[in-house]
Design a protein around this nucleic acid. Structure first.
Length: 429
RNA sequence: GUGAGUGUAGCCGAGAGGCCUAAGGCGCCAGGUUGUGGCCCUGGAGAACGAGGGUUCAAAUCCCUCCACUCACCCCA
């Protein structure tokens, strides 16, 4: 039997309400902040990510799905959304729009990894990017947006971790300081970290090895070695966050695994920790667009993992609205043609209807209506055809009445408006 | 790539060498006298027990290999 490939999954009807809820909140949040939707292809030239995300990163080095199409072009299934967004910014001359250009996307992302809880080979991200403005107020806006997004979702128990890793001017100096600090410990580091020391010293800081952690804890902190511009930027950002009363914790060990980050990096985590717990993260990428061959253009963005959001919505038992269902079920006895036409008529009047198919007994049809959780059943049989009537049964109260066929639409419309106005919760403050 | 765990019908799950041509529950389908659901009752469909090999007179139950899934590490959403 065929199955979904490793690390991929079907999203079944039962799960769809979560997806639809998150999409809706994402779009609303974007709208409130003035971010416009951008959809980029699932495939891009692989080189976009080699250059953008970085050659040495795990993502491009071993996790990217790369293949050649029939013309021999090397393509990749996108592993993330920022580089494609920047590509689109360049390709469509968005520098001639008011800066920053605010964009958001909902998109699958692919990484060839061993799946586990909260991590799949095809996962889904919602991301927000503000391109073309280096001001720290844009960083503040993105962080505020991220915060707002999770609050709107009903995930209130979250915290923000913040760091600044400097720019191409001041980072090299910091890395030297970091290396100098680490060299005396070299022998006691885990094997991975011994390699990192040479290859990617920043990564030393987020090693999970216990011994390495205690060394990293006392390591020189990047935000103590920022150049004056970066320091001002970081100080300003913090003052904005304070002004907005957004709680955050500085963590000099927060380093992100994509090469394009400069200055601000941040993550949003749930209070209840677990394996792959990070809900989302982001930061500033002031060199990325230039690295992609464009003019020097700053940017800052944030992305969250939809699967991880769902995990947390379930864990926190956040109630998510049910998807709309048809209002009526149409049962029939020796009146198949009439039933079909009735269903059609209801739908033309914007009333959702599920039609009983085949020639099941009325008992079976009612059983179905019940398990399909439809509030009303319309029953039509020989008797009704003769009299030009239908039976309208309320499945909740188990009451029914015979009404004139022509008054059905009006009747159902009235009932449904009563129902929804009843169900509507008091408007939140 | 590394480590650990699991693998019986759509789902949950009993079973631990012969009584298993595999229990039960959920779900599904159909009935319970004269056109009608949800509770209850009855019946039905559906698995050769992840795959292959081995041990044995005899294996879902023991051994081996493989595969799949899950979880953790790495890294990230």
């Amino acid at each position: 039997m065929f199955k979904t490939p490793k690390g991929t999954t079907d999203i079944l009807p039962e799960e769809q309400k979560y997806w639809s809820y998150i999409r809706k909140i994402a779009c609303q949040t974007a709208e409130f902040f003035g971010y416009e939707r951008l959809d980029t292809p699932l495939i891009e030239e692989a080189a976009l990510f080699w250059r953008g995300v970085g050659q040495g990163t795990d993502i491009t080095e071993k996790e990217m799905y790369v293949f050649k199409d029939k013309s021999g072009t090397e393509l990749a299934l996108k592993p993330e959304g920022t580089a494609p967004a920047c590509r689109a910014y360049l390709q469509h001359g968005m520098s001639s729009r008011p800066q920053p250009v605010r964009l958001y996307y909902l998109s699958p992302a692919f990484r060839y990894e061993r799946p586990q809880s909260g991590r799949q080979r095809q996962h889904h991200q919602v991301g927000f990017e503000a391109i073309g403005d280096a001001s720290s107020s844009v960083d503040a806006e993105i962080i505020d947006l991220a915060w707002h997004f999770f609050q709107a979702l009903g995930l209130h128990d979250i915290f923000l971790v913040l760091n600044s890793i400097g720019c191409s001017k001041c980072r090299p100096h910091y890395l030297e300081v970091l290396k100098t600090y680490y060299i005396p410990y070299k022998e006691s580091l885990c094997p991975d970290c011994q390699i990192r020391l040479e290859k990617n010293p920043l990564r030393l800081l987020d090693c999970k090895n216990e011994n390495c952690q205690s060394i990293a804890e006392k390591a020189p902190r990047s935000f103590d070695y920022l150049c004056s511009e970066c320091k001002d930027h970081f100080d300003q950002l913090q003052s904005y966050l304070h002004a907005m009363e957004l709680p955050f914790a500085l963590n000099h060990r927060l380093v992100r695994g994509l090469d394009y980050y400069t200055r601000t990096v941040f993550e949003i985590q749930p209070e209840s920790e677990g394996g792959q717990s990070t809900l989302g993260g982001g930061g500033r990428y002031d060199n990325l667009i230039e690295d992609l061959g464009g003019p020097p253009t700053p940017g800052v963005g944030f992305a969250a993992g939809i699967e991880r959001i769902i995990l947390n919505l379930k864990k926190e038992e956040v109630s998510v609205p049910e998807l709309p269902r048809p209002l009526v079920y149409i049962a029939q006895n020796k009146a198949d043609k009439e039933a079909i036409l009735l269903a059609r008529n209801l739908r033309e009047n914007l009333i959702g209807a599920i039609l009983a198919t085949g020639q099941k007994s009325l008992k079976s049809q009612l059983r179905q209506a019940n398990s399909l959780r439809v509030p009303y059943t319309v029953i039509i049989g020989e008797e009704e055809i003769k009299n030009g009537t239908v039976i309208l049964r309320d499945m909740v109260t188990s009451t029914q009445e015979t009404i004139n066929k022509d008054s059905l639409i009006e009747k159902v419309k009235k009932l449904s408006s009563e129902k929804t106005s009843h169900e509507q919760p008091p408007s939140p403050k």
